[in-house]
Computed example of a mutant assay.
Amino acid sequence: MAVRPSAIWHHQVAEQARAVALGRLTHANASLAHRYPDDLISRTDTALAAFEAEIAGLPRPAPPVAVLTAVRHVLGALDFLAPRLTDTTCETVERAQLRAYVRQVIAEHDATPAPAPRAHLHSA
């Protein structure tokens, strides 16, 4: 099952908070709560849950336009992340996690778009 990036981020924040509580990490070095605030995690999780539901509701094989529409919907819902992902220190990681998640959800729900019909070439 695809693990939502928001769940990964929540887990990382919780682990870092435990490390601070145990004295293994200083507050000054604990940056993940700032990087992944609760509101960001919650909004991302809501968008990804809606995407999962939309993909799960598609017929099999899924019409390519329906899959692309679902992807557009989740991208629009995640648009609030854009200003945050311009920081190169986190851009690559989060974008890669989100891309992998979208691909995995599509694959798990067997919603890969049906191949387009191929034109038959006839030899003269």
Rank of each mutant, 00 (worst) to 15 (best):
30 A>Q: 00
108 E>F: 09
60 R>Y: 01
110 D>F: 03
22 L>Y: 03
116 A>H: 12
61 P>L: 08
87 D>L: 12
104 Q>C: 04
29 N>D: 12
28 A>M: 03
36 Y>A: 10
74 V>W: 01
98 L>Q: 09
61 P>N: 12
105 V>Y: 04
35 R>C: 10
102 V>W: 07
24 R>Q: 02
19 A>E: 04
15 E>D: 05
85 L>E: 10
77 A>M: 06
58 L>Y: 05
87 D>Y: 11
20 V>W: 03
44 T>M: 15
23 G>R: 10
94 E>W: 10
62 A>D: 01
95 R>H: 14
98 L>K: 09
116 A>S: 07
11 H>F: 04
31 S>L: 06
112 T>I: 13
115 P>T: 04
4 R>E: 15
53 A>N: 06
100 A>F: 09
112 T>P: 00
50 A>E: 06
97 Q>M: 10
30 A>T: 00
38 D>Q: 11
38 D>A: 15
63 P>V: 09
110 D>T: 09
47 A>S: 05
62 A>H: 05
7 A>W: 04
78 L>W: 01
95 R>V: 07
41 I>N: 10
122 H>G: 03
35 R>I: 07
124 A>W: 01
103 R>W: 01
103 R>Q: 08
48 L>E: 02
99 R>P: 11
32 L>V: 01
16 Q>G: 08
120 H>V: 10
29 N>V: 00
3 V>I: 15
34 H>Y: 11
49 A>V: 11
22 L>W: 02
10 H>T: 11
113 P>G: 14
86 T>V: 06
25 L>R: 07
11 H>P: 10
121 L>T: 00
120 H>A: 03
19 A>G: 06
78 L>S: 06
106 I>W: 09
1 M>S: 11
31 S>D: 05
102 V>E: 05
103 R>M: 13
72 R>N: 09
43 R>M: 13
27 H>E: 03
78 L>R: 00
72 R>K: 12
73 H>D: 15
116 A>D: 13
113 P>W: 04
63 P>T: 04
116 A>W: 10
115 P>M: 02
111 A>V: 01
4 R>I: 02
37 P>V: 07
117 P>G: 07
103 R>C: 08
100 A>D: 12
14 A>C: 06
26 T>K: 04
12 Q>R: 10
70 A>Q: 01
6 S>F: 06
120 H>N: 01
11 H>S: 14
63 P>L: 12
115 P>E: 00
19 A>R: 08
23 G>Y: 04
84 R>F: 02
20 V>K: 11
106 I>T: 02
12 Q>V: 03
63 P>A: 14
48 L>G: 01
81 L>N: 15
35 R>M: 08
25 L>I: 02
103 R>D: 06
121 L>G: 01
68 L>V: 10
88 T>S: 11
